[in-house]
Design a protein around this nucleic acid. Structure first.
Length: 369
DNA sequence: GAGTCGTGGAG
DNA sequence: TCTCCAAGACT
């Protein structure tokens, strides 16, 4: 059975001359104003696929400013994909701690090992070959293929979607507008220098065509921009409203051994904060606990009845819910039998503690003594 | 298609 | 304080 590409959406496609002119203008702007980023090769130099891949994974839904220090530490510690493939899981999770979206770190290791074990340590040089690697989706595959290997690939990220929505005044809200925005991006992508073109449009979105208060006066596309002409630019792209975030609550257990060590556990490998370390807690529930004392007794790592509640709560917001934690503490004997690991307070940095756990620890250290 | 999955900064 | 959002992937 012949496989057919999905029919391109009916759009008011720019004619070839217009598309070529727009492409030339944004490339000229990029050649003049390109940002100097650690993972970006200098003009004329071949980018290192490992460095570009690492940066692209870190940059998923994450700001450049947040990525920079992590990127530098990773590249310094694991300079090649083979070095990363040989790393311990815990070492990578610890190094990633604080950056968020921890499935990326798990997939990062899987991908490094796949490239090392099955591709001789070289990244595939096609979009299709890259696409099947763990953690590499449509955007990342297109970005690496075009930037590192000069392939003609259509790179669509949030910046590109915003810029296309404005340039062509697409009023259809996201995510329904995605096929239309992709079609416009496709129409503008040149055969040559597709990677530079993609980085140019993304830079444009990151520096001028920003979500709020776009700097239209400085934009190389200001004259052609239909959204600007219609006075709509700042309001595009439209988005379908998202559900509001519920608040989940839990009681978290600070258990300190006689020698001062703190009880930590590793979370399940998948799901929220998968594979990261945590303080034990009751389940995080959005509905009030019907019987708090019972819930605490059921979830407590040790059968104690003299938990001391700390004043105040720890608040943290995840992508789709708020979390409020009541911390209770207890001191136990020299060698209690408990599932988990005992970590001296001065060695907490050696463990993969996500930010919410660091907040809870900080709360206990400042309010608990 | 719609949920899940973190965090910190900006306004 | 609160909402939005950032070079998305996966189920």
């Amino acid at each position: 059975m012949a496989r057919r590409a999905a029919a391109p959406p009916a759009i008011d496609r720019p004619d070839p001359d217009t598309a070529a002119d727009l492409g030339a203008r944004v490339l000229a702007w990029y050649d003049r104003d390109r940002r100097d980023l650690p993972w970006r090769a200098r003009p004329g130099e071949r980018p290192d696929p490992y460095a570009v891949w690492l940066s692209e994974i870190m940059l998923q839904q994450t700001t450049v400013a947040a990525v920079k220090p992590y990127y530098a530490r990773f590249l310094d510690r694991w300079p090649t994909v083979e070095a990363l493939a040989a790393a311990e899981d815990d070492a990578v999770m610890t190094a990633w701690a604080g950056l968020g979206y921890y499935a990326r770190a798990r997939n990062l290791l899987k991908c490094a090992r796949a490239v090392t074990d099955h591709h001789g340590g070289r990244f595939p040089d096609t979009e299709e070959g890259l696409r099947v690697l763990p953690g590499v989706g449509a955007y990342t595959a297109a970005a690496i293929a075009s930037i590192c290997f000069g392939r003609h690939a259509v790179v669509v990220d949030g910046n590109v979607e915003r810029v296309m929505a404005r340039l062509f005044a697409v009023e259809e809200p996201l995510p329904a507008a995605k096929p239309i925005l992709r079609a416009f991006a496709d129409a503008l992508t040149p055969i040559e220098r597709a990677g530079d073109h993609a980085q140019a449009v993304m830079d444009l979105g990151a520096t001028l065509c920003t979500p709020r208060s776009p700097a239209c006066g400085l934009c190389p596309w200001r004259d052609a921009c239909r959204g600007r002409r219609a006075g709509l630019a700042e309001h595009l792209p439209m988005k379908t409203p998202k559900a509001e975030r519920p608040t989940r609550r839990a009681v978290m257990f600070w258990v300190q051994r006689r020698d001062g060590a703190l009880l930590l556990r590793q979370r399940p490998a998948t799901g929220l904060l998968g594979g990261m370390m945590e303080l034990p807690s009751t389940p995080w529930e959005a509905v009030p606990m019907p019987d708090p004392a019972r819930a605490v007794a059921d979830a407590a790592p040790l059968p104690l009845d003299d938990w001391k509640a700390l004043p105040g709560l720890v608040a943290h917001t995840f992508t789709h819910f708020h979390l409020e934690l009541q911390v209770v503490m207890a001191r136990v004997g020299a060698n209690p039998r408990v599932r988990g690991i005992w970590v001296p307070l001065e060695r907490l940095d050696e463990h993969a503690l996500p930010t919410v756990m660091r907040k809870a620890i900080h709360h206990a250290l400042t309010r608990g003594f």
